[in-house]
């Protein structure tokens, strides 16, 4: 894992203290197919024994998705809330966060969790979470989407609190240069951390789980 250990989320987003009250809320965004749902499942599995977690999903949520999460022993149904976004996933996390706020606050009231994960519906590189909805956001890209994506930038790549580049096991198969992706990301991210990972090879998402644990601890301390 590559990261700047000195990076402090509380300094990066000073409005945090005035942001949403209650437990840490982390948004997970990124293009379709990058591995957002797989990351949510991995995080719930990795952190579920030490943290109480609830999840709001904005993806087109079917009983199939619920089955996926249940089969992987991730979370009971009552800790997952699906919000339908009317074909506009970016609106629901950025311009009009009200439906997601309702879902988050309802889950928090019912379960008093340590961590709220808000999974955006798959969108494009310009999608970004409002800090009225979350305290921190993870943007998930995958190697198969092309190694030029970090260079293209966009608020998800440049401003997310953690950039995850997933499916690095596929790099040789799709001709992606991981050094180029890492270098391009670092150029535009102004010290914010980037993680290169294969959730298939590392189903515990260890570096990301560790990052989240640090954020939870920081928020508690704050």
């Amino acid at each position: 894992m590559h990261r700047d250990d000195a990076f402090d989320l509380m300094t990066a987003h000073p409005p945090l203290a005035a942001g949403p009250a209650g437990p840490l809320r982390v948004g997970i965004g990124g293009p379709v197919g990058g591995g957002k749902t797989a990351l949510v499942a991995a995080l719930c599995k990795a952190l579920g024994s030490e943290l109480s977690i609830v999840v709001v999903t904005n993806d087109i949520y079917t009983t199939e998705d619920a089955d996926f999460l249940r089969r992987h022993g991730v979370l009971p149904d009552e800790r997952i809330r699906a919000v339908r976004t009317g074909c506009c996933p970016h609106t629901a996390i950025r311009d009009d966060i009200t439906a997601n706020l309702d879902a988050v606050e309802d889950l928090v009231a019912r379960h008093d969790p340590d961590l709220v994960l808000v999974e955006s519906g798959g969108d494009n590189l310009t999608a970004t979470f409002s800090y009225g909805l979350v305290h921190a956001q993870i943007f998930v890209l995958d190697v198969a989407g092309g190694d030029k994506v970090p260079r293209k930038g966009g608020p998800g790549v440049t401003r997310s609190d953690l950039l995850v580049i997933n499916k690095i096991d596929l790099a040789p198969l799709v001709g992606a240069d991981l050094d180029v992706m890492r270098g391009d990301a670092e150029k535009v991210r102004d010290g914010r951390p980037t993680v290169l990972v294969s959730l298939r090879d590392q189903p515990d998402a260890a570096p990301i789980a560790e990052w989240i644990t640090t954020q939870v601890r920081t928020r508690r301390a704050g």
Binding site: V83, R84, T85, G86, C88, T91, A92, D95, D96, I97, T98, A99, D102
Partner: peptide, 12 residues
């Protein structure tokens, strides 16, 4: 319709 009011998630 840009005023945050949750309307974008409903099709009437």
């Amino acid at each position: 319709s840009r005023l945050p009011s949750g309307g974008h998630g409903h099709s009437g």
